[in-house]
Structure formats: C-alpha cells, structure tokens
C-alpha cells in the first residue's frame, strides 16, 4: 500500500515540475511577443541628422532591436543582442560606440546592451515632456558606470 502511495506522490511531484516549467515557458513566450521583435526606433530632439545612426543599427545582424535617443549633446542607445552575441556584449557595445563616434564626433555617445537601459530608453522615447530628458539621460549614464 505504502509503496503505491509514495509512487503516486512521486509522480505527482514530477507532474508538478512539468507544469511549472511549461508555465514559465508560456510566460517567456508572452514576454517575447510583448517586447521584442525587429524594433529599431530613433527619437531625435536635437538638430543632428540621425539617419547615419539608424543605418549603423539596422545593418548590424547581431542586434535584435535598438532604441536611440538624440537629446541636445547626448546620444544614448539601448540595444538588445541575439542570444549568442551576448557573449561579446562588451565588445559590441564598444565597437558600436566607436562607429557612432566617427559619424557624430562632437556628441557624448552611450551604447548599452543592458536590458535595464533598453527599458529606460524605451520609456524616454514615449515621454511627452522633453524637459526632464537631460536629467534622466544623466542618471542612466551613471547607472551604466556602476557596472564595473
């Protein structure tokens, strides 16, 4: 009797893990459809021409999305990478920054593949009030510096 009972409990436990795992997967898929996809956006409130930046991001196959904000003297880009490019995250960030610096030599450029920065740049773009933008960008830059 006991043996049967414990085996049943055991199966139940197993079932539990599968449901748990599947649930998480579904959640992941929902998230996936929610906030990624080929999503390249630029918000330009400065006088600079942003088409060059657009080109740089659009043509890089390692990126899955990029949100760039041009504001006064700042350029901040939140990007997401394909799964395996994430191994070279730091290298890609540096490389893109360098390329942008070639096009916009007098700008203060920040490129980050951190998902926090990506989330925040997304919020910046949707911001109606552009007044606080400078402050918010400064805050993001300090966040990135904390990384080391």
């Amino acid at each position: 009797m006991n043996k049967v009972k414990s085996e049943k409990a055991y199966c139940k436990e197993m079932e539990g893990t599968h449901i748990w795992k599947r649930g998480l997967m579904i959640f992941a898929v929902v998230l996936l459809s929610g906030c990624s996809g080929n999503d390249f956006r630029i918000d330009n409130s400065s006088s600079e021409d942003s088409t060059k930046a657009e080109e740089v991001f659009n043509n890089d196959k390692r990126l899955t999305s990029a949100v760039t904000v041009f504001h006064e003297n700042d350029v901040i880009a939140g990007i997401t990478l394909t799964t395996f490019s994430r191994f070279k995250k730091e290298k890609i960030e540096k490389e893109l920054k360098k390329r942008l610096e070639e096009y916009y030599p007098d700008k203060d450029i920040t490129v980050s593949a951190d998902s926090k920065i990506r989330m925040e740049t997304d919020k910046l773009i949707q911001l109606d009030n552009k007044k606080n933008m400078g402050k918010k960008i400064d805050k993001l830059k300090s966040l990135i510096k904390e990384e080391t």
């Binding site: 998480l24 998902s115 926090k116 989330m119 966040l143 990384e147």
Partner: peptide
C-alpha cells in the same frame, strides 16, 4: 530541472529588480 528552475526564478527576480528599481543587469 531543479537547478534550471531555481536559476529561472532568479532571472525573474532579477528582472523584477531591473524593472521596478534602478538596477542594471550587472548590479
């Protein structure tokens, strides 16, 4: 499965901190 699930929960927790507080992936 067990280790993966624990890390997955960890990832959710870390996403939570990134979304609602000023933490980057690393911090």
């Amino acid at each position: 499965l067990t280790g993966g699930t624990i890390c997955l929960i960890g990832q959710f927790v870390s996403m939570f901190y990134m979304t609602f507080f000023d933490f980057t992936e690393r911090t």
